[in-house]
């Protein structure tokens, strides 16, 4: 079967620094992949590149979404093809309210699929599900939000935009136990044969709730190991050091 997301031989530079080297990764429809790796290994760079950040320059290889080459495609067009990225550190946008941002975004991505009247109802339900107060809507996007609130807002957008492929960059970091539960269960319930995930995480906790089909380890911009869910467990117990040593011996 043709993968929904296929990364072939991808090398990337940012600010003339090489951050990814010949990365290969294929995700089938409905699969959940986990991407793990130390800080600085290139996880966020990969997610930014997938979403089309203009500063991240592809120097080799290509990215195919449902068979279509994404080269040169703007971030907004990628989003319209139902690719989604939950940011590790979403930027504050003072002056733009969450309400108008979400409405514009839903309209842009889902068009007439959700009637205007439904949008408000949909947002209200999702807010409740994530335990966010409705007064949140009049605040500015990510402006003055706590780390946990930002992650919830990312999760909210994931739910509202219903992507085909969702990349979640450490959406589980910096959350307290209750928030982590709310967030992971809202993500887990989105799992479907029509939706694939790339979960970037440091923690086993999230992967226990959302069991991955495949686990990749990224090190210095290269995928050094791929395995099943047990690989994540191994990392959790032994750390990246063992993998690092193993890969160094190759």
């Amino acid at each position: 079967m043709k993968p929904i997301l296929e990364i072939q031989d991808l090398s990337v530079e940012v600010e003339s620094k090489k951050v990814l080297h010949h990365v290969n990764l294929s995700i089938q429809k409905g699969e959940v992949h986990a991407l793990m790796g130390r800080n600085g290994s290139g996880k966020t760079s990969l997610s930014y590149t997938l979403m089309g950040h203009p500063k991240y320059r592809v120097t080799s290889g290509r990215i195919l979404l449902d068979g279509e080459d994404l080269a040169g495609m703007s971030p907004s067009d990628r989003a319209k093809r139902r690719l989604f990225l939950a940011f590790q550190n979403p930027v504050a946008v003072p002056g733009v309210t969450i309400a108008s941002f979400l409405r514009t975004s839903i309209r842009s991505v889902r068009g007439d699929e959700v009637p205007a009247k439904e949008v408000r109802k949909l947002i209200r339900e999702e807010l409740a599900g994530l335990g966010i107060s409705e007064t949140f809507m009049s605040r500015f996007v990510n402006d003055g939000l706590s780390g946990g609130e930002k992650k919830r807002l990312e999760t909210l957008q994931l739910r509202l935009l219903q992507p085909k492929v969702a990349i979640l960059d450490e959406t589980d970091s910096g959350l307290d136990v209750d928030a982590l539960k709310a967030v992971t269960s809202r993500i887990e319930s989105l799992r479907s044969p029509d939706r694939s995930f790339l979960l970037i995480t440091h923690y086993q906790r999230m992967l226990e709730a959302i069991r991955p089909d495949v686990v990749h380890i990224l090190m210095d911009g290269t995928i050094v190991k791929t395995g099943d869910a047990s690989l994540a467990k191994e990392i959790d117990e032994q750390g990246f050091q063992s993998i690092h040593e193993a890969s160094a011996q190759l």
Binding site: M51, G52, H53, P54, S74, P75, S76, R78, A79, K80, L85, F87, P90, V91, V93, V96, F101, T104, S105, S108, V109, V141, Q157, L161
Partner: peptide
């Protein structure tokens, strides 16, 4: 980039 990543045309 953040707004565009949510499908909002540049």
């Amino acid at each position: 980039y953040y707004l565009a990543s949510r499908g909002i045309p540049e």
